[in-house]
C-alpha cells in the first residue's frame, strides 16, 4: 500500500491509500466529531457532522471526513468558521427532533448549538442508522430496519425476528445517541411479544 502525504490542521500526516480523512486524522490524534460513523460498519455518510474543509489545486470544498479518501497534498481543516457554523446548524436541526439526546450534548456544548432555534418536532430518532446497520452488518439478524422516507422515515422492528433475537443481544442499544431505539424496542416488545419478559 502506497503512502500518501497530506496536511491536517497544519500537521504533516502520512496515511495509507484508501484511508478516509477521518481515519488519517484519528491516527495522529486529531479528533473530528461523528454521529453515524462506526469503525466496524460500512461507510454511511448520513449525518454530515464530520464535515471538514479540504483544499486541493487551489479549490476549497466541504466534504464528509468519514467518506472522503485521502489524497496526496490535500490540505484539510477540521475546524474553521465555516465548518463550525455548519456543525452548529446540523446540531440545531437534530435538536429539533431529539432536544435532550444524551449522545448530542457534548457536541452541543462544543459548538454552542441552541436547541430552541428550530420549532420542536420531536421524533427522537436522528436517523444515524447505527442500530439498523449494526443489526444487518455485524449481527446479520435483520431484526430492525427503516421504513418510509424523508421526514416520515422511522425505525421499525420485525416482531417475529425481534422476539427471537433481541432479548439476548441488545448490543445496538448503546449505539443509539438518543435512546429512541430502546423506546421502540419496549413498545414492540409489549405489543408483539410481551410474554418473553419473564
Amino acid at each position: 500500500m502506497s503512502e500518501i502525504l497530506l496536511q491536517i490542521d497544519g500537521k504533516e500526516v502520512k496515511a495509507g491509500e484508501g484511508m478516509t480523512i477521518l481515519e488519517a486524522a484519528q491516527g495522529v490524534g486529531i479528533s473530528i466529531p461523528t454521529l453515524c460513523y462506526h469503525k466496524n460498519l460500512e461507510p454511511y455518510g448520513g449525518c454530515r457532522i464530520c464535515t471538514v474543509e479540504v483544499e486541493s489545486g487551489g479549490l476549497t470544498r466541504l466534504v464528509a471526513a468519514c467518506l472522503y479518501p485521502v489524497e496526496e497534498n490535500l490540505i484539510v481543516r477540521t475546524r474553521s468558521e465555516k465548518v463550525d457554523r455548519i456543525r452548529k446548524m446540523i446540531l440545531e436541526l437534530l435538536l429539533a427532533h431529539a432536544p435532550d439526546a444524551a449522545g448530542l450534548q457534548d457536541l452541543v456544548q462544543e459548538y454552542g448549538a441552541n436547541k430552541d432555534r428550530f420549532e420542536k418536532e420531536a421524533s427522537f430518532c436522528i436517523h444515524c442508522g447505527l442500530c439498523v446497520r449494526y443489526c444487518t452488518e455485524i449481527k446479520k439478524k435483520n431484526a430492525i430496519g427503516f421504513i418510509d422516507r424523508g421526514i416520515r422515515k422511522e425505525i421499525c422492528f420485525i416482531p417475529q425476528i425481534a422476539a427471537k433475537e433481541c432479548n439476548d443481544c441488545k448490543e445496538c442499544f448503546e449505539l443509539c445517541p438518543t435512546s429512541y431505539l430502546q423506546a421502540v424496542f419496549v413498545l414492540t416488545e409489549s405489543l408483539a411479544f410481551p410474554s418473553s419478559k419473564n
Binding site: 439498523v132 443489526c135 444487518t136 435483520n142 431484526a143 430492525i144 430496519g145 427503516f146 421504513i147 418510509d148 422516507r149 421499525c156 420485525i158 425476528i161
Partner: peptide, 12 residues
C-alpha cells in the same frame, strides 16, 4: 432478502 430491506423498499 431480509424482510427489513423489503419493508424499507415497499414503504419508500
Amino acid at each position: 432478502v431480509p424482510l427489513t430491506r423489503i419493508q424499507h423498499i415497499a414503504t419508500f
